[in-house]
Nucleic acid binder design. Structure first.
Lengths: 386, 386
DNA sequence: GGGGATTTCGCGGGAAAGCAGCGTTATCGC
DNA sequence: GCGATAACGCTGCTTTCCCGCGAAATCCCC
């Protein structure tokens, strides 16, 4: 009852309506096909009348379409009205910047990717030209989707490094050029919708919870460990950035000797360079077939990873750790060995899996970020305030 | 807009009323003295009329008292009605179990401690007798407060070890006897109010944010490092327990070599034994006056702590780390050296402080826990659901 | 093919809650 | 004493949600 925080502000009926509108849209979005009033009423625990009224407004606004009635097959009763989210009503852009490339996708309200584009970066050392590249690529992806610019509602960008809550780059490993760059601000200047930004590992974790293997988990760590290293942390279902976005930027963490194995070929699994990845996979193949040197190298790699994951299990203690960023390619070797190592270390029963989203993870997470923020902007926060 | 989680359920007017009631109670609780309708209206952004009506119900229920009107000194206008939270309307129990002692306090709704009791534990190895001790002690503290049992609304207990979201002890360092003990369940059987439980470090962090040095920080780590070790983690203002309550139980964490210094006298700062603490303080005193061996010992201790805190700064990345559990007694030596070590490690600008709540921290945190949960039980969640 | 059974529709009525605003009342300062 | 000021105590109104009932549309079985 007693908080020392700034006051929570009260609620009024229009807030209720905003919340309920959002709840209904979410319900429509989750269900695969068209949905009836009765089904919505059950799922949202709102009265049918209320849903009826809210759907009227959503129909007017174009968010929802009413389909033809079809007799319910196999059961009696008057055919229900059928409503469906008009996924194409709004489009979202998501982009990912790596040291070498830019990727962009355009997605609809359901999060279905409807357009793509990709190009190498002109110069990663020049943030402004890179951001220009992003903007152009977004327009390409939009064209690929056959969507007009005015249907674009929001955008989100995934980048490496420490990115704070405002989307400003605070620290990068290999360069200082990007430090202080206000990603949402710069992109909104180039593509005139609200933009949001986050670290690619954070968005990987978010994606995995949305569309991947982490569906039931509230505390999730997405881990990329190898030739580069980064963790994405989800606490209570939401990305945890920490001070200056540093959470999970373990490269510089003491007692997490990330650098110690990063030059070994097995660690190239996580490289952006496909040739290096191929070399790493060869080493794993050799280890599988019992070659001693390769096997030892893998063991060392596993031991190194296990030490980091063990520490994580006792600090963040997620219920699931997802290996991504290239590690999934050697999941058959890594997962059993890591599980065994964690078991020996007597950590809590953390689940360990490989990503199912692969290289798209950060992009999918960015789509989800844009989607969530657009929702909040349009319908207000689901949570009254803090 | 699109979640893969179970449906959020809708809101209705009674939920609005619950939220607003809670908001008003919180507003009353925060303000030091009596509060006027107009002041409440400003702070809650609710209309005066609404507040008027809600206060009527709260007056009926006994939560709020109306004081005599007093002309506003120094300004014109009709004197305002003055309302005040009746702090004594409900009482809360908080207890703390250590390996050797039990402490209990009784607090009012404002969180003011109005009764205390303490006794050595009969046998820590016997959970049931210990819980009996807790129950008796709570009754003593209640008597000390001059409160009748029926005014007691909730209780919370702080214990060492990994305690999961349901308050069940999952793991302890020195014994397995407590494993599986359902603290809230057992205590509710002995003292018939809803009980809640959490790890003492977690509650230390919570306390520090409520009444201590962490008032403005949303991501906080409370750190006890020495002869025993434990972290309390607050993420977005709420305790983060993690899987099986393991978050912050770094004793067993690989690459966090907690054991390495725990037998050194300087590490006895955190001992429950006052004699050992005195020994540790002597060593620090010696280090202050320049004795070489003591100084080296302190350096080693600091280096050890710094390595853990650096790792934390790159994983959890709190904006504040609070030293507690006895470390505060040597804050003048530890804080500057640790700050310097973190600076050298180029961590993000984590603030570092010593607790101001001292040995009461966990108890104060338990009071806050009971308070928050009682609020939720009475007025429903402030957040509509997840 | 007609008559239940079933399911949903469509809508009227009502209740709960919050808001706007206005005349009234009590105090201050001169 | 009188104007300025600030809060009171309402009345009336709007928004929003919920309850529930007769009507409609379909299925199923005889």
């Amino acid at each position: 009852m007693i908080g020392n925080r700034a006051m929570a502000s009260g609620m009024n009926q229009s807030a209720v309506r905003r919340v309920n509108t959002s709840v209904i849209l979410r319900a429509l979005a989750v269900s695969a096909g068209p949905t009836t009033l009765t089904a919505l009423a059950e799922r949202t625990s709102l009265s049918r009348r209320t849903i009826e009224l809210i759907l009227d407004s959503l129909l007017d606004a174009g968010w929802v379409a009413e389909l033809d009635r079809v007799p319910a097959k196999g059961s009696a009763g008057r055919p229900a009205r059928r409503y469906e989210l008009r996924a194409e009503h709004a489009l979202l852009a998501a982009a990912r910047i790596t040291t070498a490339d830019v990727f962009a996708v355009v997605a609809d309200v359901r999060g279905r990717i409807v357009g793509r584009a990709h190009r190498p970066l002109r110069s990663y050392q020049d943030p402004h030209s890179s951001l220009d590249d992003v903007a152009e690529l977004v327009r390409e992806a939009l064209a690929d989707a056959g969507g007009s610019p005015e249907r674009l509602r929001a955008g989100a960008v995934a980048s490496g490094g420490a990115i704070d809550d405002d989307g400003v780059v605070r620290r990068l490993v290999h360069t200082t050029r990007w430090e202080g760059v206000d990603l949402p601000g710069e992109l909104a200047r180039r593509v005139r919708v609200p933009w949001f930004a986050d670290n690619d590992s954070n968005l990987g974790a978010l994606a995995e919870r949305w569309r991947g293997v982490a569906g039931d988990h509230d505390n999730v760590v997405w881990a990329v460990l190898g030739n580069r290293a980064g963790l994405g942390i989800l606490i209570r279902g939401a990305v945890h950035r920490g001070l200056d976005g540093a959470a999970g930027e373990i490269i510089e963490a003491a007692s997490m000797p990330v650098g110690s194995v990063e030059d070994r070929p097995v660690a190239w699994l996580t490289s952006p360079d496909p040739d290096r990845r191929a070399v790493a996979l060869d080493r794993f193949e050799a280890a599988r077939s019992g070659e001693a040197a390769a096997s030892a190298e893998v063991d060392e790699f596993v031991e190194h990873m296990a030490s980091i994951l063990t520490t994580l299990s006792w600090t963040v203690a997620p219920s699931l750790i997802v290996l991504g960023g290239g590690l999934e390619a050697a999941a058959d070797v890594l997962l059993p060995r890591l599980r065994e190592a964690l078991r020996r270390a007597r950590t809590p029963a953390v689940e360990l899996r490989a990503t199912v989203l692969g290289r798209d993870a950060a992009l999918v997470g960015a789509v989800k970020l844009a989607l969530d923020r657009m929702d909040t902007e349009l319908f207000g926060p689901l949570v009254p305030s803090a």
